[in-house]
């Protein structure tokens, strides 16, 4: 196990972190819209949202990635590997995050919403200034959890041609015949990344003012 091999693993880890963070962010934006739609009483909003959530939670991420990579070109959408990877991870995490957020939205006390309306906030202001911040605060630990899940799931994107940490470790292990130090290093790198994510999460949680509504 030389410094060169470790450097290669670290470079691949940058791909892992980059793809995961971008996907978590995009997924979060989609999740807010999805959870809002899922909470709607009108079928035209909640039906597509429920369908989306059940598909992306019900189909293995590996299959989703392969579908996005090889099925979409059939209908004329040919995306490069990196886009397929980010789209796959984003849509999958969006479904999970939407369910977390829905739980959060449903836990916002109705009295607070009524109070907001009484003080003259319009529905949009009530949504973005009252409901979203409270729901976020309530679901923040679950969001950090999801971020860690996606960081680990990103090891699957090598099936669409992305060289990330796991794939690099496999390639190096098979060419150097040093599987144990290489996979141990990869495990250590994942552990460090996820520890940082969970530390940042805990810090952010504290500055958000805890989980009290």
């Amino acid at each position: 196990m030389t410094l060169k091999l470790f450097t290669l693993l670290l470079q691949a880890a940058i791909a892992t972190v980059g793809i995961s963070l971008v996907s978590i962010a995009i997924g979060f934006a989609i999740a807010i819209l999805l959870s809002a739609a899922a909470l709607s009483r009108k079928p035209i909003y909640f039906l597509p949202a429920r369908l989306f959530i059940s598909f992306f939670r019900g189909v293995p991420l590996l299959v989703q990635l392969l579908l996005i990579y090889t099925l979409l070109p059939v209908i004329g959408i040919n995306v490069p590997s990196i886009v397929a990877a980010i789209v796959g991870l984003s849509l999958c995490t969006a479904a999970y995050q939407a369910e977390n957020l829905r739980g959060g939205f449903e836990s916002v006390p109705i009295g607070l919403i009524e109070a907001a309306e009484v003080t003259g906030l319009n529905p949009r202001q009530t949504f973005f200034r009252i409901r979203v911040p409270i729901a976020m605060r309530l679901t923040f630990p679950a969001l950090v959890n999801e971020a860690i899940m996606i960081l680990k799931s990103s090891s699957l994107v090598s099936v669409v041609g992305i060289i990330e940490l796991t794939k690099m470790a496999q390639d190096l292990a098979s060419s150097t015949y040093l599987p144990i130090p290489i996979f141990a290093s990869a495990a250590l790198i994942y552990l460090v990344i996820n520890s940082v994510v969970s530390l940042v999460g805990r810090f952010a949680e504290r500055s958000l003012g805890g989980a009290s509504a």
């Binding site: 990579y69 090889t70 099925l71 979409l72 070109p73 669409v160 041609g161």
Partner: peptide, 17 residues
Amino acid sequence: WVALPWDGVFPALEAGK
């Protein structure tokens, strides 16, 4: 170069990747 697992290579060729 686009590197895939071998069982994914032919489907991806047909998909125009």
